[in-house]
Amino acid sequence: MLKLTGVQKTFNKGTINEKKALNGIDLQLKEGDFVTIIGGNGAGKSTMLNMIAGVYPIDAGKIILDGEDVSRSPEHKRAKFLGRVFQDPMKGTAATMEIQENLALAYRRGQKRGLRWGITKAERQRYYEELKMLGLGLEDRMTSKVGLLSGGQRQALTLLMASLQKPKLLLLDEHTAALDPKTAAKVLELTEEIISEHRLTAMMVTHNMKDAIRLGNRLIMMHEGRIIYNVGGEEKQKLKVEDLLEKFGQASGGEFANDRMMLA
């Protein structure tokens, strides 16, 4: 489904701000894999997701998505494969447009947009049903502007938008980090539901190690632009937070894990 080979990315090359963000990433995902990704700040987690999505061009290596080499194709061309939810709840939706309009935009992801009407009656019915499943009461506010929703509601909506047109790969970039704990739990619950219901292949960056262990069938730890730990199957099931902290400690040369990881 996804194959990364030797992916490298350096930001601000040749300046004093040079930052090697990805340092030779090799990774392979099978259909239906749900990978959680952990690592300290600046480890390259978000960069890896952004490189897969094509937000920035990569310096070296290959990205194969669903059998197609997309290493050099622009972001909007890769969109047909990808569902994405960002850390910032404001980033995934258009605030001045209606809830149903946002859904209609997402429903046409990767398709040619022409002069047909932007939203059909049959779609509205479908959106109503889908919104109802979120259990947030949004189905009765379909013509409300998204800007009126809370961060959690917007994030739940973005999640629905990402799965409306079944993606080959769902990219979740710390999508609950900006939410309060209760809302974060709810959005995470929705995430699980949507992934299992549509049997999606997914990658989720998180700072919560318990979630990283509990969710998905594979766990990746990153450090300084490298994947330093990649575990699946039974071994992952048996993992404990302490194991991860120890791994992380080894990797960062005995230093303690950063505050956010300690708190997790």
């Binding site: 999505a53 622009p74 972001e75 909007h76 061309k77 969109a79 047909k80 990808l82 994405r84 960002f86 404001m90 980033k91 995934g92 939706t93 258009a94 605030a95 001045t96 447009m97 309009e101 209609a104 935009l105 997402a106 046409r108 992801r109 990767g110 398709q111 947009r113 022409g114 002069l115 047909r116 009407w117 932007g118 939203i119 938008m161």
Partner: peptide, 24 residues
């Protein structure tokens, strides 16, 4: 109100979002 027009409105609202939804 068309698909193209809606994509255009979304471009003015949120470029990141509409690019992620496959619009150039």
């Amino acid at each position: 109100g068309t698909e193209l027009g809606a994509a255009l409105r979304a471009t003015g609202d949120n470029e990141d979002m509409i690019r992620a939804l496959g619009v150039n």
